[in-house]
Amino acid sequence: MVVGSARDIVETCGVPRFLFVDYPLGNPCGRPWAPAEQKGLFAQALRLLEGAYGPRTTVQAPERWVEDPAADRHWRENFMALRDRKALAEAGAARRAAQATGEKPVR
């Protein structure tokens, strides 16, 4: 089974059982330093293992990263936001130039 936060990527691939944790990428098994929540999510994963009866079964964990609607919208929209297209174009060009000369790409 898979536990993750990129629902579209996992469902596009297709897996037998998927516990979707609707958090920013990086904490699929629960928020940092929150052992009770991590334990609760693992328990949900075990219930999904037992309950699924066919492939592509997705269960969405009820946990929310933040309750405030504005803060919720912020983390969703902020990631990979296209704020400065000129800077992005320049970063891409610099990366291609570095790769062409055999240097390590800059992430």
């Binding site: 629960g30 334990k39 990631f79």
Partner: peptide
């Protein structure tokens, strides 16, 4: 991963070893 929204300093957020052992 989303460096603005969170961090990955707690390895249990990536791999729930403690939760599985519990």
């Amino acid at each position: 991963w989303d460096r603005d929204a969170t961090h990955t300093d707690d390895p249990e957020t990536l791999l729930p070893i403690a939760a599985a052992e519990a």
